[in-house]
């Protein structure tokens, strides 16, 4: 088993930053699912009802939030290369583990 990686567990992560990224990602989902907050005609913008232009606005906001989350997760859990050599796990933990982190 020369291809067994040294590391068995997930790479270490900054849990706070991961949670922040999670919040950023949740914002557009929650905002758009609350249909009652934007299902109205007025005020119109360039002829577009509020219902329409508000959702268009979220296209841009969502892009910005997702990009921020992308930068944050890169920082929160930097990639740790797997070591191709050796034939035992460093942490020797073979039990299935519930990994709640991202």
């Amino acid at each position: 088993m020369s291809t067994t990686p040294h590391r068995h567990e997930a790479p270490p992560a900054n849990k706070g930053l991961l949670a922040l990224a999670g919040v950023l990602l949740a914002i557009p989902i929650v905002a758009l699912l609350l249909v009652g907050t934007y299902a109205k005609d007025e005020p119109r913008l360039g002829g577009f009802p509020f219902f329409i232009w508000y959702q268009f606005l979220w296209v841009i906001i969502c892009s910005a939030l997702t990009y921020s989350a992308y930068r944050i997760v890169l920082k929160a859990r930097p990639h740790v290369p797997m070591n191709p050599e050796g034939d035992a796990y460093l942490d020797a933990d073979d039990a299935p583990r519930e990994d709640g982190t991202r």
Binding site: I29, L32, F56, C62
Partner: peptide, 21 residues
């Protein structure tokens, strides 16, 4: 009208945060 058709817009917006995860 909007319920049958325009939901495609929020659908294709929240799609990306979901797959990001």
């Amino acid at each position: 009208g909007a319920v049958n058709g325009f939901f495609a817009v929020p659908y294709t917006i929240i799609l990306y945060p979901i797959i990001f995860i």
